[in-house]
Design a binder for these strands. Structure first.
Lengths: 124, 124
DNA sequence: TTCCTCATACTAATTAGTTAGTACTAAAAG
DNA sequence: CTTTTAGTACTAACTAATTAGTATGAGGAA
């Protein structure tokens, strides 16, 4: 059985979210964005992005002086993987308990649920 | 703002699942259970369970020679916390996108969705 | 040209998570 | 009573994740 691609860690996800948002970004772009939230070193961001490239989540091209990074695959794919991984860990792989949990937790009405179903169908 | 209780790591969750299942368990009980799946040292399990006690997920009482551990709070509470934490990390705190994702991913029909809603209502 | 800025590569320190060894003690077995 | 067994406490090794420092080079500014 092939070992599956390592899933995103906390900090890696932080960076991926930014790159998904910007669609393409240099280390500096990401660095500046994170700086608004918290203190971090430029080289830290660089290291992380290189790791993400190694894991196959980002791809880079040379652009002027600096590398330009882009997501290697669409956000939806990655999110799908993370959700699946979470369901495996916490709910032993079956999605239904999570759904039940969420519906109960949110106290959704029939109407809201139908609305979600509609959006989901569109998403498909 | 009070710092929230540290969330369960991978291995900690593995142990908690066993204790929830058994309802109360000694280190040995958990050790034997894990052994069925993989090789592990007795003291490793002990260390982990002590950590879980420190984090407030387990509480122990002296029982004969060994400690008897029990869950400090019901499984549902902890699961709720983990789901919330996941939603924060991945979906910036809003549950709806996760719901939409799940419904779309599972390709649920009206009927199945209604069924889930029914179970959820009972759960409440 | 010379200097400053900003980029990368390489290296490494620190912290968190996981795993397990060793010393010691009390109870059970012989 | 002595030996074996099964438990805990304390310590530590190892791996993974996170963070950042230093060296170096290319390009633009003076």
């Amino acid at each position: 059985m092939r070992k599956r691609k390592p899933i995103l860690t906390e900090q890696e996800l932080e960076i991926m979210k930014i790159v998904w948002e910007l669609e393409r970004a240099t280390v500096r772009d990401v660095y500046e964005t994170i700086l608004k939230q918290r203190r971090i070193a430029y080289t830290t961001v660089m290291t992380m992005m290189k790791i993400l490239e190694g894991k196959g989540y980002l791809k880079k091209t040379q652009e002027d002086r600096a590398y330009l990074y882009r997501p290697a695959e669409p956000k939806q794919n990655v999110i799908r993987g993370m959700v699946a991984e979470f369901i495996n860990r916490v709910f032993n792989g079956s999605a239904e308990p999570l759904l039940v949990h969420l519906v109960a937790e949110e106290g959704l009405t029939e109407k809201e649920l139908a609305e979600i179903a509609k959006i989901a169908r569109r998403e498909k």
